[in-house]
Design a protein around this nucleic acid. Structure first.
Lengths: 171, 171
DNA sequence: ACCTGAACACCGTTCAAGT
DNA sequence: ACCTGAACACCGTTCAAGT
């Protein structure tokens, strides 16, 4: 059921993804969905949790290397599901559990790397907001039929620049 | 008409802003709007152009200082209209004329500062994507009733870090 | 417990018709 | 030129009823 929803969302894009269309694809009554997921926002959160579930920092490396690796993996994952990312980022108040786990994990790694908790919070926002902004730009470009390359390489260079600043701050 | 639309959007948020609601507020038939703006996407573009029209780089300073000033002014402007920013960023293929003017101006300043055109393109993406990601995060937080401070101060610190990297690259 | 039909209160947009 | 009424093809969601 969740996998069908994720597949359909990939086909239709964020715009075309509706409860009624998903029900039709599943061959069930639209209202049955409400019995399983509560409402549309909770369905989106459940899809996001499924997609984010495997994202974890690399096992080896310094805290900063693991933080960077986690961020890159998170970015690669949401780039693979641009329409879902669009829905998650623009659903008011929606913070799916797995996304929270990822940002909590990132905060922990930044603190372990030697940042004061307050600075870790600032850097978390910088890194995550940029990652979301880049993913959003790629998602919108893809939705209007642009070539889908470019995005990933630019993200790599940008993250490298940001991590250099971070390293400089830690000293 | 445009100002009424902008006011209404501020009141209702992105979700509640509909053609029919705007027509009701204006006391006209919903279909009259289509005579003036074409469709919903073009209406949103027209609102964005109105809001972005005044955003320009400071007159004095080095190219890099003017680039940073332009970016801060752009960020301050879109933060004042979070719901509109949400609609612009998530309307597929929508790139309002004034927004394009601002990013073109920014690219010109980065080149004037000594960046090769290719690097200027990379840095434009970094700076603009981060600005949009930060604005999006603030918009969503505001929409779920969070305190509206914080956002601006963090953006200032983040932009300072990014500009430092840029300066280092130019040498 | 799980599913459904009918209904409510909406949408954006088209099109033919009015002044 | 500018505006409108009626209609089309949709939405998300509630609620009472069915198995």
């Amino acid at each position: 059921m969740l996998s069908t929803a994720i597949t359909l969302l990939g086909e239709t894009g964020a715009e075309g993804f509706t409860m009624r269309r998903l029900a039709a694809r599943l061959g069930i009554n639209p209202m049955t969905l409400y019995h399983h997921f509560g409402d549309r926002a909770q369905l989106i959160a459940a899809m996001a949790d499924r997609i984010h579930a495997g994202v974890a920092p690399p096992a080896a490396g310094s805290p900063l290397e693991r933080a960077e690796g986690l961020l890159r993996r998170y970015h690669a994952t949401i780039l693979r599901h641009p329409a879902l990312t669009l829905l998650v980022l623009t659903s008011p108040g929606l913070f799916p559990a797995q996304a929270r786990r990822i940002t909590d994990s990132l905060t922990g790694l930044l603190i372990a790397a030697g940042l004061a908790p307050q600075r870790a919070g600032l850097w978390l926002d910088i890194l995550v907001d940029f990652t979301h902004g880049a993913a959003l730009a790629t998602a919108m470009a893809a939705q209007s039929g642009a070539p889908e390359d470019a995005g990933a390489g630019r993200y790599d260079q940008a993250i490298a620049a940001l991590m250099a600043s971070l390293r400089a701050e830690i000293g």
